[in-house]
Design a protein around this nucleic acid. Structure first.
Length: 275
DNA sequence: ATAGTCAAACAGCGTA
DNA sequence: TACGCTGTTTGACTAT
């Protein structure tokens, strides 16, 4: 990022070289100093603090910079070794930042400066921490939302599968009922044909003997609606029997019925014939 | 020793 | 121009 701010902590992201170029009015990385002479009340058990802790003061208002008789030694060591090391924030610093984040996850400039002062970090470090923290929070949110959506999907899928099964059962039931009616109609047709004793050119038959105009076009409700009593009476005359059921009655053909449509005997749709 | 994970810091882009 | 976001890099740390 050429042309960006030169001072560490200022402007946009800086490269490593820039990061190490401490302006004359600023201080060497404090974590380096703290490694030998910690004075920050926010230093955690790990004794780690960012080397960006420049110019801060702790809660008691005392300087973060350890200015003792060895101060120059730290300075020399810093510039000689150039400890370009990334340091984790201390536990206390993170806790402080977490509490601040819980209050408000966006960072106004004033709060950033105040936090930087309180924690002895660079404002840019505070900004970066909030940036990363928001990213982690968003990731967590996405995971949570995914879990929620996934469980909703599982429930919906189960309901859908159950509906499919129910639908299949209902379809089978429809076929059952239609085949019952078809059987009745066939028998009726047979009887009529026998009576007329001739081939009826106006009632063409299909090769398998099923009357084309009757196939799956009648259902029990039609039969019941269009004069149940007459139909029943007529069927009784032809040797049909009726068995009462919960939802009406089942129609049984005469014992020696010759009406056969080529369905297997064990066909579920015709199982009622063997009742 | 090394692979995996986490977090600090950075890069680059969009936006107000 | 500062800031936010997303993606990436890098170093510290841990488990094996």
């Amino acid at each position: 990022m050429a042309g960006k701010g030169f001072m560490y902590g200022g402007g946009d992201a800086l490269n490593h070289k820039q990061k190490l170029e401490i302006p004359s009015h600023n201080h060497p990385p404090l974590d380096y100093l703290f490694q030998s002479a910690p004075s920050n009340s926010f230093l955690g058990s790990r004794s780690m603090v960012s080397f960006g802790a420049l110019g801060g003061v702790n809660k008691s208002g005392s300087s973060f910079f350890h200015q003792d008789e060895n101060g120059d030694e730290y300075l020399d060591e810093y510039f000689n070794n150039q400890p370009d090391k990334k340091r984790r924030l201390s536990v206390d610093q993170v806790e402080f930042l977490e509490r601040s984040f819980e209050t408000e996850n966006k960072l106004e400039p004033d709060r950033k400066v105040q936090l930087a002062k309180d924690l002895g970090l660079q404002p840019r470090q505070i900004a970066i921490w909030f940036q990363n923290r928001r990213a982690r929070w968003k990731t967590k949110q996405l995971e949570t939302e995914y879990e929620t959506l996934n469980s909703s999907y599982e429930v919906l899928k189960e309901n859908y599968d159950n509906l499919l099964k129910e639908n299949e059962k209902l379809k089978i039931e429809v076929v059952n009922l239609k085949s019952k009616v078809l059987g009745v109609a066939c028998k009726n047709e047979e009887q009529s044909s026998a009576k007329s004793d001739v081939t009826d050119v106006e009632s063409p038959r299909l090769a398998d003997g099923i009357h084309s105009s009757l196939v799956f076009e009648l259902d029990k409700s039609d039969l019941l609606r269009n004069g149940e009593d007459n139909s029943k009476e007529e069927l009784l005359q032809h040797g049909y029997t009726f068995a009462n059921t919960e939802d009406g009655y089942n129609i049984h053909p005469p014992a020696a019925s010759s009406c056969y449509y080529g369905f297997p005997v064990e066909d579920h749709a015709f199982s009622f014939w063997s009742n």
